[in-house]
C-alpha cells in the first residue's frame, strides 16, 4: 500500500466516523423531539376526541351557524368602519412612534458606527474606544428590553398608566416595534458596503459626512422596506390590542364575543379582513414603488 492509498483509507474512515456520528446525533435529536411532543401532549390537556365528538363538534358547528348571516344593518356597519379607521390610525401613529424610537437608538446599536471597524481604525486612544462601548451596550440593552415584552403586555401596562382608549395602543405598538425595528436597523447599518465609506474617508470626509453621504443612502431603502413590513404586522396587532382596552376593532370584537353577538362579530371580522388585506396590498405596492 503506498502513501496516497493510506491517506485515502484514513480519509474514508474519518468520513465514515463522521457519518456515524451525524447519524447518531440525528437519531438522538429525533428521540428528544418525540419525548418533547409526548410531554407537551400530556401537559396541554389536549382532547381531540372532544373536538370531533358529536358534542364538541356540534358546539362548533352551531357556533359557526350562528355567525351567519353577517349583521349588515347601517348602524353595525358604520361602527365597524369607525373601528377599522381607529385601528388604522393606531397602527400608523404607532409605527411612526416606533420609527422615531428605532432611529434614535439604532445608530448607537451598531458596532461599526460606534467603536469598531473602518471608521475607528485610525483611533489611537484605546481607552476612548473602550468608553464608546458603553452607549453601544446601553442601546442594545434598551432595544432588547423593548422587544422582549409583547405588545399585549405593553398595552396592559399603558392602559394602567394613561387610561382606556386608543392612545395606550399607540404607545404599546410604538414601544415594542421600536425595539424590533431598532434591532433590524442596527443590523442593516452593520452590513453596510464599506467601499463607498472607504472612498469618502480617503477624500478626508468627517464621520458625519460619511454617515450622510455613504451610509444613509445605502440603508434608507431597507429601512423603509422594514418599516412597511412592520406596519403590516402592526395593523394585525392593532386589531387585537382592543382586547385589553386599547380601542379599535379589537375592542368591538371583544364586546361582540363577550355578549354573544355572533352576527355583529362576523361583520367586524369581515371589516378586519378587508383592512388587513388592503394594508398588505398598499404596503406591497409602496415597497415596489419606493425601494
Amino acid at each position: 500500500m503506498n502513501h496516497a492509498d493510506a491517506n485515502a483509507d484514513q480519509l474514508a474512515a474519518l468520513k465514515a466516523g463522521a457519518r456515524d456520528r451525524s447519524r447518531a446525533s440525528t437519531w438522538a435529536l429525533l428521540a428528544l423531539l418525540g419525548a418533547l411532543f409526548v410531554w407537551s401532549y400530556q401537559g396541554s390537556e389536549i382532547d381531540l376526541g372532544m373536538l370531533f365528538s358529536a358534542d364538541g363538534g356540534g358546539a362548533i358547528a352551531e357556533y359557526v351557524e350562528r355567525l351567519f348571516p353577517p349583521d349588515l344593518s347601517a348602524k353595525v356597519v358604520a361602527d365597524a368602519v369607525e373601528g377599522a379607521w381607529e385601528t388604522l390610525a393606531i397602527s400608523l401613529i404607532g409605527t411612526l412612534l416606533s420609527v422615531v424610537i428605532a432611529l434614535s437608538l439604532a445608530f448607537f446599536g451598531s458596532r461599526n458606527l460606534v467603536y469598531a471597524g473602518l471608521l475607528y481604525e485610525m483611533e489611537s486612544r484605546r481607552h476612548l474606544v473602550l468608553l464608546r462601548r458603553i452607549p453601544y451596550l446601553a442601546a442594545k440593552a434598551i432595544l432588547n428590553f423593548l422587544r422582549t415584552i409583547p405588545e399585549m403586555l405593553w398595552a396592559l401596562v399603558f392602559v394602567f398608566l394613561v387610561g382606556l382608549g386608543p392612545f395606550p395602543g399607540v404607545l404599546a405598538l410604538g414601544v415594542h416595534t421600536g425595539g424590533v425595528l431598532g434591532k433590524l436597523f442596527a443590523e442593516v447599518l452593520e452590513d453596510v458596503d464599506l467601499q463607498p465609506v472607504e472612498s469618502l474617508q480617503s477624500t478626508g470626509a468627517g464621520k458625519i459626512q460619511i454617515l450622510f453621504y455613504a451610509i444613509l443612502p445605502q440603508v434608507l431603502p431597507q429601512f423603509i422596506s422594514y418599516t412597511l413590513y412592520r406596519w403590516e404586522v402592526n395593523i394585525r396587532v392593532a386589531a387585537v390590542l382592543g382586547f385589553v382596552g386599547a380601542g379599535g376593532l379589537g375592542q368591538r370584537i371583544h364586546i361582540a364575543l363577550s355578549l354573544f353577538l355572533e352576527q355583529q362579530l362576523l361583520t367586524l371580522l369581515i371589516a378586519l379582513y378587508v383592512l388587513v388585506t388592503g394594508v398588505d396590498y398598499l404596503s406591497a405596492y409602496l415597497r415596489r414603488r419606493v425601494v
Binding site: W85, E86, L88, A89, I90, L92, I93, G94, L96, V162, G165, P166, F167, G169, V170, G247
Partner: peptide, 11 residues
C-alpha cells in the same frame, strides 16, 4: 397622518 393623530387620541 393628521387624521390618525386626532383619532388615536395622542396625548
Amino acid at each position: 397622518l393628521a387624521d390618525s393623530w386626532r383619532r388615536a387620541e395622542v396625548d
